[in-house]
Design a protein around this nucleic acid. Structure first.
Length: 312
DNA sequence: AAATATACCAACCGCTGCTAC
DNA sequence: CGTAGCAGCGGTTGGTATATT
């Protein structure tokens, strides 16, 4: 029988005398696999299939098997922040492929969350989906506010709101006064990250902006449909910032998360810390222009998410 | 033991963006 | 500027293993 797929299971491969693991450990080339399959089954794979096979299955360093609790939490958290952007989520789990994460989400986590209707943060006290969404939005609000303050030169008392927040923890929010302090400490590096990320954008703002729109339009969020998640360009861009901030916040609180953080992000952080050692305001002003002028239809500081959160 | 249902996940499909020409 | 080729992404499919009846 001519199989239409590479061989579904490792055990099946083994029964055929074909061990992907052997290829891993040896001097593997994907040409070898093409050769093997073509001679064994007389199949001709297109380059796309081969690339996919490589990136999702054969690439060295891919971790297989069950997801750990830590990984599971990260996926849930990142999915909430980034939506179904599996590639982006996978960048924070270097050993897992986007396909793996996507499958795991669709087959396990969706059901799990639906069944339990609990907070993905796994607080000691179970929380309903609505409560969890409210808390998430409040967290995002605080992070957004922090970013706004950090970026706004016209607001000398930049952290006033935040200082207030320190004294008045938002009910239901997981951002305690302690974590707010964490946010305070992570402003600079977050700003730097954003400026760094925008570095590419500044090369061709129109294109990058278009990409963002396209990316957002193609984004669907089954979990949070109608839950106040991003629905336009500005918000989705903000979401990236929020995720950065949030992730850094987590970084401060969970070393495991820090360890598994995307090497790219880590690199950006390191590099930007060096770059922004002085008064490199150019990047910052570009960022501000982008945030407040071009995308000024919806001001960053309007905090629409907060309004939504209040409506719960 | 056989039939059926369910779970899992590698691979497929269609789309978009980038690059080279 | 238009086009072809390629890479990457996310949704979906369908083959297989396992559980249940």
């Amino acid at each position: 029988m001519l199989r239409s797929k590479w061989g579904q299971k490792r055990s099946l491969d083994s029964r055929r005398g074909y061990h992907t693991g052997d290829l891993h450990s040896g001097a593997w080339t994907w040409e070898l696999e093409i050769y093997t399959y073509q001679n064994r089954f007389r199949l001709v794979r297109c380059s796309k299939s081969c690339r996919l096979r490589w990136t999702n299955y054969l690439r060295p360093g891919i971790k297989r098997g069950n997801f750990t609790d830590q990984e599971e939490k990260m996926i849930i958290h990142l999915q909430a922040l980034l939506g179904n952007r599996w590639a982006a989520i996978a960048s924070y789990l270097p050993q897992r492929t986007d396909n793996d994460i996507k499958n795991y989400w669709n087959t396990h986590l969706k059901k799990k969350l639906k069944k339990l209707e609990l907070s993905p943060y796994e607080d000691p006290i179970p929380m309903s989906r609505g409560q969890w969404e409210k808390r998430l939005q409040t967290d995002i609000h605080l992070a957004r506010q922090a970013l706004c303050d950090a970026l706004s030169p016209e607001k000398p008392s930049a952290s006033s709101d935040l200082s207030e927040a320190k004294h008045k923890p938002v009910p239901g929010s997981s951002v305690s006064s302690k974590s707010v302090q964490t946010l305070t400490t992570i402003y600079p590096s977050s700003t730097e990250n954003i400026a760094k990320l925008l570095k590419g954008w500044t090369k061709d703002p129109a294109k990058q902006a278009h990409r963002t729109v396209v990316a957002d339009l193609s984004m669907t969020d089954s979990t949070f449909s109608g839950g106040g998640m991003p629905s336009n360009r500005t918000e989705v861009s903000d979401n990236v910032f929020e995720s950065l901030i949030k992730l850094e916040s987590l970084d401060s609180s969970t070393s495991g998360f820090s360890r598994s953080m995307s090497p790219e992000i880590s690199h950006l952080q390191d590099e930007s810390r060096l770059r922004f050692g002085g008064d490199d305001q150019e990047q910052l002003s570009l960022l501000l222009n982008w945030l407040f002028d071009e995308a000024g239809k919806e001001q960053l500081c309007d905090f629409p998410m907060a309004d939504n959160a209040d409506s719960f």
